[in-house]
């Protein structure tokens, strides 16, 4: 199974020159090539099962002087996709980064229908907008909730007295 995945990753690196592969076989793809990359995974490499869509918030780090960067929020948010192949048996983790100020990336609903609810959840809790999603609105929180809870700068008061 590892050999199959290795050869798949090698072929993908040849076709898409800008992707990076880490030691644990995690592929990072720039946002512009995301849709064509995912479509190729589904059509040519039998990856037909999208297991997991999630995102992590990495706010900007302090710069070298120890002061915070207050001109521009250089932080990023990473969106992670886990794709399985039922027939071939391997699984691949694909990551992509968007800017934290105005996070937008294309929706994967056109490739796999399983992205429907999971992308709505990522939008609800982190505020990342998926363009071309058929019905992007809040799913877990109520419609009048202000803010995005899973961001690192979300302030709230718990009920503990």
């Amino acid at each position: 199974m590892d050999n199959k995945l290795d050869s798949v990753i090698k072929e993908l690196q040849e076709k898409f020159s800008e992707i990076k592969v880490s030691e644990q076989q995690v592929v990072t793809v720039p946002v512009e090539q995301l849709t064509s990359f995912m479509q190729m995974l589904k059509d040519e490499y039998y990856m037909d099962f999208l297991t997991n869509v999630t995102a992590v918030d990495y706010p900007s780090d302090k710069n070298q002087n120890g002061e915070e960067d207050d001109e521009e929020d250089k932080g990023t948010m990473e969106v992670i996709y886990n794709v399985n192949s039922i027939t071939e048996g391997y699984t691949l983790m694909v990551k992509t980064s968007v800017a934290r100020q105005n996070p937008k990336l294309p929706s994967m609903f056109s490739v796999w229908g399983g992205a429907h609810f999971q992308e709505r959840e990522v939008f609800d809790l982190l505020g990342i907008i998926f363009t071309d999603h058929p019905d992007l609105k809040r799913i877990l929180l109520d419609d009048s909730f202000k803010g995005y809870p899973l961001r690192k700068d979300f302030q709230w008061v718990g009920g503990r007295k």
Binding site: N52, T54, I80, N82, H116
Partner: peptide, 26 residues
């Protein structure tokens, strides 16, 4: 599925749970 990100401290940076019932409702 569980997705855990660690930043070296004793508390996780991010925990995400891939829940089967949630995805099955789609």
């Amino acid at each position: 599925g569980y997705y855990v990100v660690s930043d070296g401290s004793n508390k996780p940076y991010r925990v995400h749970v891939r829940r089967p019932s949630f995805v099955n409702l789609g």
